[in-house]
Write a protein that binds this DNA or RNA. Structure first.
Length: 250
DNA sequence: CGAATTTGACCAGCGC
DNA sequence: GCGCTGGTCAAATTCG
């Protein structure tokens, strides 16, 4: 998917050229500053990506990929660790899908909560032998009969990283994506979570494939979110109204 | 007051 | 059989 921003360069030749040029210059300045911010955000993402990659290399997790938000995601198509004992509830011997997600949190954050768009109910906590930090057990409480379970524990190597292990598949769609992730669709970014920003202006620098991949993943996630699409549609229609009003006032 | 979280007890698998 | 360990239950507690 490719995102482009297009400016209507068809300026009314009948006059008011200066005003139009002024507007365009203003828009250009705004886009430039926005682009700087976006590049900064992207650079930050790449740094997170590299540090996570190093950690994963140490752990020899060959089938892990970094996704957006500085999150590392392991293969979901196979079991990462075989269930040592059959679940009491699952007596039909079907192996649940297991996926592992690494989430970087603030060092000051001591909670074991991973915002992933679903609603979880904590049903237990345990200190395991191989890790001094406690492991929290969650069940999906968004749908009454959703079988998915989640285990969250801080990484032994890096206490700033939460390791979330998901078992099973949701039989429902996630709650509001933007709400849960703190992804802001308004100009005022929320500070309750990671903020995803899309670089809509092509950078003069040659983007690496990694960066492009990250942007693609962000775009895919955002475009899947109905809330984001609605907010985008509203923003576009508002923008069009503003442009219509400005052009009619000229 | 109901829902969510905490936390100790309990259960079952595994290794010795 | 016994102890260790991970996972779950459920009563108590907290919170909105």
């Amino acid at each position: 998917m490719e995102l482009t921003s297009s400016l209507d360069l068809n300026v009314d030749p009948s006059g008011h050229m200066d005003v139009a040029v002024e507007m365009l210059m203003e828009e250009l300045h705004r886009l430039n500053s926005e682009n700087k911010k976006l590049s900064e955000a992207l650079r930050h993402l790449c740094e997170s990506y590299n540090s996570l990659k190093k950690q994963l290399k140490r752990k020899d997790s060959s089938n892990c990929n970094i996704n957006l938000f500085g999150i590392s995601e392991c293969s979901t198509s196979q079991e990462l660790e075989p269930c040592k004992r059959p679940c009491r509830e699952n007596t039909n011997f079907t192996t649940p899908k297991i996926s592992k997600v690494l989430v970087r949190t603030a060092p000051s954050d001591t909670g074991l909560y991973v915002m992933d768009g679903y609603q979880w109910r904590k049903y237990g906590q345990k200190v395991t032998r191989d890790n001094p930090s406690p492991r929290a057990y969650f069940k999906c409480s968004f749908a009454p009969n959703c079988p998915v379970k989640k285990k969250v524990q801080r990484s032994v190597d890096d206490p700033g990283v939460l390791v979330a292990t998901y078992e099973g598949e949701h039989n429902h769609s996630p709650r509001g994506f933007s709400e849960s992730l703190g992804v802001s669709t308004s100009p005022i970014a929320r500070n309750t979570g990671p903020t995803v920003t899309l670089d809509l202006v092509p950078s003069s620098d040659v983007q690496s494939s990694t960066q492009q991949l990250l942007v693609q993943q962000m775009a895919t996630c955002l475009t899947r979110d109905p809330n984001f699409r609605a907010a985008l549609a509203t923003a576009i229609s508002e923008k069009n109204l503003v442009l219509d009003n400005t052009s009619s006032n000229i």
